Amino acid sequence: MAARKKGPNTAQAVRELAQPLAEELGLQLWDVRFVKEGADWYLRIYIDKEGGISIDDCVNMTHAVDKPLDALDAVAGSYTLEVSSPGINRQLTRPEHFAACIGRLVWVRFIRPFADGSREVIGTLAAYKDAAMTLQNEQGETMTVPTADTAWVKLYDDDDGGNHENE
């Protein structure tokens, strides 16, 4: 197994490689993650575009990134490459994600529970600035939360009946 190269982490190096390739294909690079599940490593590239993506978009991005990834040699050892949509309940992780989703309903899980014991809130993303988001509830009340205090933030799709147990 080759040693990892110094410099940006694997996901960041792949992001830098994949960004212009996605743009050439008319796609938005939503996220790149390099994760270990069990004994296996997965390099996941999430893409999006206005109107949603198709399987052909995923195939085209896979083909576009495959050889440049091998040449970059940013990943030590074997891994599985997956290219897909970030999904309806996509996770917001980068400032541009928050900016693009202002006015949308989000589901937030906090690292620590509130005084009432709850760890989650659903509200409209009203603003995002300096790594903090402002949420507005149905009554129009707002709360500002640093993203560092959250376990995750996802778009909320209430069309699925609110069944989010396994997320």
Rank of each mutant, 00 (worst) to 15 (best):
M61G: 00
I45Q: 04
G52P: 13
V65E: 02
D56F: 02
D56R: 01
P68V: 00
E50M: 08
V65I: 15
P68Q: 09
E50T: 10
W41D: 13
P68G: 01
V59N: 07
A39G: 10
N60F: 02
V59W: 09
D56V: 04
K67W: 07
G52H: 14
I45K: 11
I53K: 04
D40P: 13
A64S: 07
C58N: 08
D40E: 15
E50N: 04
Y46G: 00
Y46D: 06
Y42L: 14
M61N: 05
D57N: 14
I47F: 11
N60L: 09
I53H: 08
G51F: 11
I53F: 05
S54P: 02
E37Y: 14
A64G: 05
L43M: 13
D40C: 12
C58I: 07
T62S: 02
I53A: 08
Y46T: 04
A39P: 06
D56Q: 08
S54I: 00
S54T: 15
Y46A: 00
V59R: 11
M61P: 03
Y42C: 08
E50R: 10
T62I: 05
A64V: 06
V65K: 06
K67A: 12
G51Q: 01
P68E: 02
R44W: 02
I55C: 06
C58L: 01
A64F: 01
N60P: 10
A64Q: 04
G38C: 12
D66K: 09
H63G: 02
H63S: 06
N60G: 09
I55G: 02
V65S: 08
W41C: 12
T62P: 03
A64H: 05
G51Y: 09
Y42I: 08
C58T: 07
L43W: 07
D57M: 10
I47C: 04
D57H: 05
N60M: 09
M61Q: 02
I55T: 03
D40V: 15
K49D: 03
H63N: 12
I47V: 15
L43F: 09
D48H: 08
D48P: 04
S54Y: 00
E37A: 15
E50G: 05
T62K: 04
I45R: 05
C58G: 11
D56T: 04
S54V: 03
Y46W: 15
E37F: 14
D40W: 11
D40H: 14
D48I: 13
E50I: 11
S54R: 04
I45F: 06
M61I: 03
S54G: 10
G52M: 06
I53D: 00
V59F: 13
Y46L: 13
D66L: 04
G51K: 03
G38V: 14
S54F: 00
H63W: 06
D48S: 12
Y46M: 12
A39K: 11
I47E: 03
K67P: 04
I53M: 06
T62H: 01
G52L: 10
L43Q: 14
N60C: 05
